[in-house]
Each structure stands twice: as structure tokens, then as C-alpha cells.
Nucleic acid binder design. Structure first.
Lengths: 243, 243
DNA sequence: ACCTGAACACCGTTCAAGT
DNA sequence: ACCTGAACACCGTTCAAGT
């Protein structure tokens, strides 16, 4: 009678966490962070807002989950056999391209790195870069600084290159990166050369430069600085003009 | 009779833009970005919300104005006579300390740098660092890259060091940076050494390091990388493993 | 000119109620 | 267990109305 065979138990579940997160990503990709509202998400999933809280959690958790999914995909890429500096470049470029595809990711990456040191994203990025730094033959007391420097640069560069649409104002600056840069270039060239000599002179470079290439060169510059430092030990590089 | 002497014109103005922005900063300092609501601001100024829109603009403009005020104060500091690299360090540290005092500033700085290239903040920072880079004797084609690398690093480091309170979870992590770092250290040390060898080994450094010193050393590392590159011209540092 | 504050169109989140 | 969706406590912004 009560032979309870543990039937598939007539599951009422019709919503999966995975499916929700996929929809979150779609919403973010289409309209940026502001487009992610619990209501919009619920509607696209043909459900009530409560179901989302039940399956995933509050809005912040939706963002975390989407971020983790994207970043873990980047972190999972092989990277075996390549040199330490190449491994760093590969991860950095992987993240760069991920932000290119998902502009909302830059801000979320910063959030995770600063507020969730226990999270898979923070730990994965630090571990990958850190272990590569260690393999570079740098003296151990410098490992942490070198890793932090690389992570900070990557974070800043991703933030700046994330193609968030600029504040609508001035000339019709579309969400197109090329147009954007060329309008910046024009604005800078028009500056008073006495007040902004550098920007005025560099205006052309802003229009013509390639973000991705500049990013790679930045990584190279930092790696060079790290390697060179291994030879010249403790020079006096204290706290600048501290007053 | 109608000798209209242009009296002080019985001004009804009781609210100044300056006073509003000062109150915005106070609100942000006390409770972070989420504490800045138009309603809270209006109440502290004993006025209606409409008055704020009349004097300054929408909420985003309140944030911009507060950011500009703080950053322009940092940019205005002398910097005459000091060496180019010292000028860069001074500005970077000035921004670092400003973020320390105003944690909300980090995010706003990123916003301005990425979305308001015409703004005083973006232009001031790029001009100051760029002209210092130019004075360092670097070949002209490298000016833009070098400047961008420095700005990106500064941006990333400020973001990461901004003492935003972490997501409340896990051990009682207060808004105190020291406690925060030491709890991170404990968590990292507890990690499986097989899965996270680097983090496990570096755990102590995380607890003991000084953010500000690490920041300065990061700047030095990058400056070194930039200077060294001037000797070794166009090596092949293209696009990593582009597939 | 300058300010008021109610009204509008949204939010995220909760939770009794249903199945 | 899983989901619904009304209700609650907020938002930013606008704008007729006042002085």
C-alpha cells in the first residue's frame, strides 16, 4: 500500500535557476543594467516576481549569477602549456572580449572584486593571475603587489572600455564606439592649446587608436615593469610628497 | 519717479547651487550613493524637490557636480617644479586619498571617465598625467598608450580600494578596512591548497599589506615599464593567442 | 525668478493565498 | 514544494500653482 516508490513526485517546478539567469543575461545584453527589472524579467519568463525570489534571490543576486556565469566561462579556458605571461594576456583578453560582448559586465566585475572576495569570480581571477606571476620567477615578496597591479589595471581598462552609452548631449553620439571616439577627438582638438596642450595635441590618436591593442600593450608595459623590478631591489619608492 | 536704480531686486533666491552640492557631498559621505535621494536632500535643505531640479538638475547631475568639486580640488594642487613622475604620483595619491575620504567617488570617477570625455574631470586628469608623460622623454607615439595605461591602473585601484561595505554575509565584516582584509585573509587561508594554491599561500600578505603603499608601488612599476620601453622599440607584442 | 509639493509612473521586495 | 500577484514602501521627475 504505502509502497512509496518515490515517483518523480509530480514536480511542479517549471522554472530553473539556469533558465532565469540566461534570461537575465539576455535582458542585460539588450538594454544594460537599467533594463534588468524584476518585473520585466518575470514577464519574459511568464511568471510572477515572487518566483524569481524563490529560485534565485533578490536583484543583486541576479546580477551576481549572470556575472559568475560569464566570467567562469572565461576562466575555464585551457591555458595549459602557455607561458605565464601569455596566460595573463589570455585571461585579460578573454575578460576584455567578454566585456565587449556584455558591456554591463565591467561594472559587475568591479562590484564582485571589491565586495565579494569570497566569490568564485574574485578568487578565480586572483588565483589565475597570481599563479602565473609566481611562475614568472619574481621574488616571493613581490607576488602580491604584482598581482594586484595587474588586476587593478585590467579592472580599470575594462571599465573604461565598456561601451556604455554616453550621456546624451552634444553631438549625436550613438552607442557606436568609433563614432564616440571620433567625436571625442573633435572635441579635444577644439580645445584651447594653452589650457589643454596635451589633449589638443593627442586628439588624433584618440580617434585612431584601437582599444584592444592599447589594452594588450598596457599589459605588456606592466609585465615589463614587474620583470625589471626583480633586478633593482628596494629603491626608495615610498609615499611621494606626503607633506 | 521711475528712476529704477536697480535695487538688489528683492531676490527670492534662498538656495544656491553651491550649498546644494555641499549638502549632496555630506549625504554621500554619510551613507554612500544610495543615501542620496532627492527627497532626503530636499528635506535637509528644507525645501521642495522641485527646487533642486531648478538649481542643479536631476540626480545624475547632483552626482556629477559633487564629483567635479572634489576632483577639481585635487587637480588644483600646485605640482610646479616637481619631476614628471612625481607629478603623476602626487595626482594619483591625491585621488587615492580623496576616495579614501569619499568612498562614493570611485564609482563616480569611473562614470565620468567613461561617459563624459568632455567633462572637466576627464580632461583634467588626462591633461595632467599626459603632459607629465610627455615631459618624461618618451617617444611621441607612445604618449597616448602610456597615459591610458596609467589612468586605467589608477581607476582600477581606486575602485578596488574604495571602502564600500561588503555584502553583509559570512563573518561580521564591518566597514572597517582592517577587519575586512583580515577576514579575507582567513577565508583564503582556509581554501583548499590544491584548488587555490596561490591564494592559500598569499593569505597572510592580504591581511598585512597597506593599500596606499601597494598603490604607490603599482604606479612605480608602471612608470618603470614605460621608461624601459623607450629603449626597446617595436618588439612583437601583438594580439596574444588570437586563434 | 524662484520655490512648493501633490501627482505620476515607475521601482524592489514581501507574503498570504493558492496548487 | 512551488508559484501567483496584490500590497507596501519606496524611488526620480514633472508641473500647475503660488510668491
Amino acid at each position: 500500500m504505502t509502497s512509496s516508490v518515490r515517483l518523480p513526485s509530480r514536480t511542479n517546478q517549471v522554472l530553473s535557476r539556469h533558465g532565469i539567469v540566461a534570461e537575465v543575461t539576455a535582458l542585460l545584453d539588450a538594454g544594460g543594467e537599467e533594463a534588468l527589472t524584476v518585473r520585466a524579467l518575470a514577464e519574459r519568463l511568464s511568471t510572477g516576481s515572487g518566483a524569481i525570489y524563490y529560485r534565485v534571490g533578490p536583484r543583486s543576486e541576479l546580477l551576481n549569477a549572470a556575472t559568475e556565469t560569464v566570467v567562469e566561462d572565461v576562466l575555464a579556458r585551457p591555458g595549459r602549456g602557455v607561458s605565464p605571461s601569455q596566460r595573463i594576456r589570455d585571461l585579460a583578453l578573454g575578460l576584455f572580449d567578454a566585456v565587449d560582448e556584455h558591456p554591463w559586465l565591467a561594472t559587475q566585475l568591479v562590484n564582485q572584486l571589491t565586495r565579494r572576495p569570497w566569490g568564485a569570480v574574485t578568487m578565480g581571477i586572483f588565483e589565475t593571475i597570481g599563479s602565473a606571476v609566481r611562475s614568472m620567477g619574481i621574488p616571493r615578496p613581490r607576488w602580491f603587489d604584482a598581482t594586484a597591479t595587474l588586476v587593478h589595471f585590467i579592472l580599470g581598462a575594462l571599465s573604461q572600455n565598456a561601451r556604455t552609452e554616453p550621456e546624451s548631449s552634444d553631438p549625436g553620439a550613438g552607442p557606436d564606439r568609433g563614432e564616440f571616439l571620433s567625436s571625442v577627438s573633435i572635441a579635444w582638438r577644439a580645445l584651447d592649446p594653452d589650457q589643454f596642450p596635451f589633449l589638443h595635441e593627442i586628439a588624433d590618436d584618440a580617434a585612431e587608436h584601437d582599444d584592444r591593442q592599447q589594452f594588450v600593450r598596457g599589459i605588456s608595459t606592466i609585465l615589463r615593469g614587474i620583470e625589471v623590478a626583480s633586478d633593482a631591489p628596494t629603491e626608495q619608492e615610498q609615499g611621494a610628497s606626503d607633506a
